[in-house]
Design a protein around this nucleic acid. Sequence first.
RNA 1: GGUGGAGUCGCCUAGUGGCCGAGGGCGCACGCCUCGAAAGCGUGUGAGGGGGCAACCCCUCCGUGGGUUCAAAUCCCACCUCCACCGCCA
Length: 453
Amino acid sequence: MGDGRPQGRLIAWPWGCDAAPPRGVIIQGLTRRMLDKRFIRDNPQAVRDAVAAKGIDLDVDELLQLDQENRKLQFEVDEAQAQRRSRSKQFAKADEARRAELRAEQEAFDRQLKDNRERLARTGARLAELMLATPNIPWSGAPVGPDESANVVLRTVGTPPRFDFAPLDHVELAERRGWAEFARARRVAGERAYALVGDLVLLERAIHSYALDLLRTQEFTPISVPALVREEPLVGTGMLPKGREEIYEVPADDLFLAGTAEVALVGLHAGEILEAGQLPVRYAGISASFRREIGSASRDVRGLLRVHQFEKVEQFVLCAADEAESARWHAQLLATAERILTDLELSYEVVECATGDMGVGKFRMNDINTWFPSLGRYRETHSCSTLHDWQARRANLRYRDPDGTIHFAHTLNNTAVATPRLLAALLENHQTADAGVRVPGVLRPYLGGRELL
RNA sequence: GGUGGAGUCGCCUAGUGGCCGAGGGCGCACGCCUCGAAAGCGUGUGAGGGGGCAACCCCUCCGUGGGUUCAAAUCCCACCUCCACCGCCA
């Protein structure tokens, strides 16, 4: 990696300047085999701790017990199956009398086998359910706490703008300039709907083009992926089974509207065994994203901050199962997001997310919050996550080492740009006294050189 | 939306109920041969789970899931994907 944009000064890495260093050896052993049943068997306490730190509803002891029972049943069924096969072999060579005998024997035997099979299916299903609820073990540097209130600000970069006039919020500004339709859009599509108009559309495209071009210089392959997806990739990424109410469903076709391109990006390689030489896979994924926002009903209903449908360029990395490598990519993804905000001349803060905020599958998560003058505070615009092999295990996404051994890969993702929220930030931060908007230098080439909208 | 065809161990392919717990070719790896190589010859060549201190052994997987049968790659049903043609369409 590394293409000469480390921005190392800003990056608290490897382990975060404000956080304690991890207990390396222990953490390494732990995370490398996370979600592996053998790991859970060998380190039940580590899993219990993670469950507690992340506030997850999971009975680890039930899981262990089921695992044991499941293996016992599997063993019995295997043995029985071996017998059944040998009996079937004999049948071909037997005479009629012997055949009748074998048939009778087999029948009784099959009842037992069938019974065991059913029990195995039941324990297996329950075990799978619990396994899907098993969290990744968070890195030791993450603040422990129930929710985002425990998050820690690592650093603040840039300065919020000072206005010598009364600044507008992005809704007032957009409406004054005829850049957005809210009332009409809501007649069409209900609450939180919006339509961008005129220069604001051009600005949105400019931001996406700029982000895509920046990522291309880092050898990220632009890829435009489905937002309308099946259930499997949602389970594979960890969006399901928990979190169902946040996702739009299209029941007539058994499809869902993904909340992020990450779903398709992981899904693209699910079930594959890549060659080590193909790694790292780097995508700049673009797609529409859909969220029901059920958990935040009636919050931020005004404007462009929290909408049901938005557009993203997503950074995504699929790399070898090496913690140091994943850590380097995490740093790079974060640095790129910071670079984007710096280029857009926006002030932001980088946050170390607490265990209760980071979600079940994550090892580490850093949010970036961008300054919004109308809110008088920083508000999330980016989220950078390392999942180690937790996601790859679910998606059965593996690679083969040169020595022939097969491993689950590591996955990471981070927003590059998500609009229209980021558009709102640009409008508010770069507005002029007469309701114009100054265009940051990096976007001008995408807007025919215009310096002011 | 309709009709027809197809999905086998990296690739190509054999295979129509027990001899397929999958044969052949290509590729790949190792060995022999060679000064070296090619050719030739030989051997090997997937994934997952489980048992055993171990050498090793067992089970599952022929797109996926069910079913029929003593026995399924092979027969039946549903689904998925691909191909062809027809219809519709940004």
